[in-house]
């Protein structure tokens, strides 16, 4: 059940010009969190910014009682978040939403994690759970530039094969992550795909999934106020008309469930 938690900043580390990794002491959250769920952090007790900031859970360690958030400084809230020092208290609402649907116990096979830029954020926590289930896991990671390919070592450390591409060719293959996936599928069995990234990337993945009959799960981002299903702000169109809500119906959807 979602609740507000008083967490404490353990570290807040800059990984690139605009990406940061925040480690929080958050025992209760770490015990409940499922990969793909998200939290809403309140960066200030004042009214500007007013709303909480939705962030996906990058990693989670119930034994240590820690939660890791990976975020990009894109606006006032995230810039304020990047200034938090170790020891600061942070009000975190969560865990929220429905995460990734994981393979059943004993199910084998492989998984492809598809990340676009900061969309890599929810995938480490997922990778950890997949590896625990003995699923052969690969990360295909695309970003604008080498500096945006953050946190790769954490994936490699748990046995995930990482292949990168950049738009400017500064690291890995030059191109986008959908082309990378298309190439990858020439030589690999199409397993489950778990994706997070910008809307054009997810839209292209929907096309490819249809073409190649892939089962993909997409983690979406949306502007939202509450994160609890009350404001109905985070609407995403669904096939056949009407809307789903990213906060409670998602943030993870099957590729066929949403119209991007």
């Amino acid at each position: 059940m979602p609740a507000t938690h008083k967490t404490t900043v353990i570290s807040n580390e800059q990984l690139s010009p605009n990406s940061w990794r925040l480690l929080l002491a958050a025992q209760a959250l770490a015990e409940q969190a499922q990969p793909g769920q998200f939290v809403q952090v309140r960066v200030t007790a004042t009214y500007d910014p007013l709303l909480r900031t939705p962030l996906s859970m990058h990693d989670c360690d119930p034994a240590q009682g820690t939660l890791t958030l990976l975020y990009q400084t894109v606006g006032t809230s995230t810039r304020m978040l990047s200034r938090l020092q170790a020891g600061t208290e942070l009000d975190v609402l969560g865990p929220l939403g429905h995460g990734f649907v994981l393979p059943e116990q004993g199910e084998r096979g492989s998984a492809i994690l598809l990340a676009g830029g900061i969309g890599v954020a929810p995938l480490l926590f997922l990778a950890r759970e997949l590896v625990k289930k003995h699923i052969d896991t690969s990360l295909l990671f695309g970003a604008r530039s080498a500096a945006d390919l953050v946190g790769i070592a954490d994936f490699e450390q748990i046995g995930v094969t990482v292949t990168c591409c950049t738009n400017d060719g500064s690291q890995g293959i030059s191109g986008n992550v959908i082309d990378l996936l298309d190439n990858y599928l020439q030589s690999h069995v199409a397993g489950r795909v778990f994706a997070c990234g910008p809307i054009p990337m997810l839209k292209a993945l929907q096309g490819l999934a249809k073409q190649r009959d892939l089962a993909a799960q997409l983690s979406l981002e949306a502007y939202m106020a509450c994160g609890l299903g009350a404001c109905l702000g985070c609407a995403v169109a669904v096939p056949g008309g009407g809307f789903a809500h990213v906060c409670t119906d998602g943030p993870v959807f099957k590729e066929s469930e949403v119209e991007l």
Partner: peptide, 23 residues
């Protein structure tokens, strides 16, 4: 009622705008 098309909420100074549309 399905409500209005997104984007439906945006933060403003010490406030927020919404155009949910009675979903």
């Amino acid at each position: 009622r399905a409500g209005n098309r997104p984007q439906r909420v945006v933060e403003t100074a010490a406030g927020m705008l919404n155009s949910i549309g009675l979903e």
